[in-house]
């Protein structure tokens, strides 16, 4: 569809830079590489667990570039005081996963 992804291009560039800095292997980051980054946000672990549930769209225990952007988006919004949704709203689903 022509639904715009809620992650803005300038945010995506920032998240992609963080993604690259974590040393993705084959274009994906494993859970143990992403976990410390999310823990760094100081958000409660149950919130981070939900962020992971929502962002690991194919549930393979790893995040690709777009899934990682969803995770970072949710973490930044949560830090601004917005609640993390219980399920992923359509505007948050990366165009590559629709």
């Amino acid at each position: 569809g022509d639904l715009h992804w809620v992650v803005k291009p300038e945010e995506k560039m920032k998240f992609d830079a963080i993604f690259e800095s974590l040393g993705p292997s084959g274009g994906i980051l494993t859970g143990d590489k992403v976990k410390p980054v999310l823990l760094n946000s100081k958000l409660p672990v149950d919130i981070l667990g939900r962020v992971w549930e929502l962002s690991d769209i194919d549930r393979d225990g790893m995040l690709d570039r777009d899934e990682f952007s969803v995770a970072m988006y949710l973490v930044y919004r949560a830090l601004e005081g917005e609640p993390v949704p219980m399920s992923l709203p359509p505007p948050l689903v990366p165009p590559s996963k629709r």
Binding site: V34, G49, W52
Partner: peptide, 13 residues
Amino acid sequence: QYPAGGSSTNPFL
């Protein structure tokens, strides 16, 4: 929440 016998893919659980 996860299938019996399956392992969690969530590093926070």
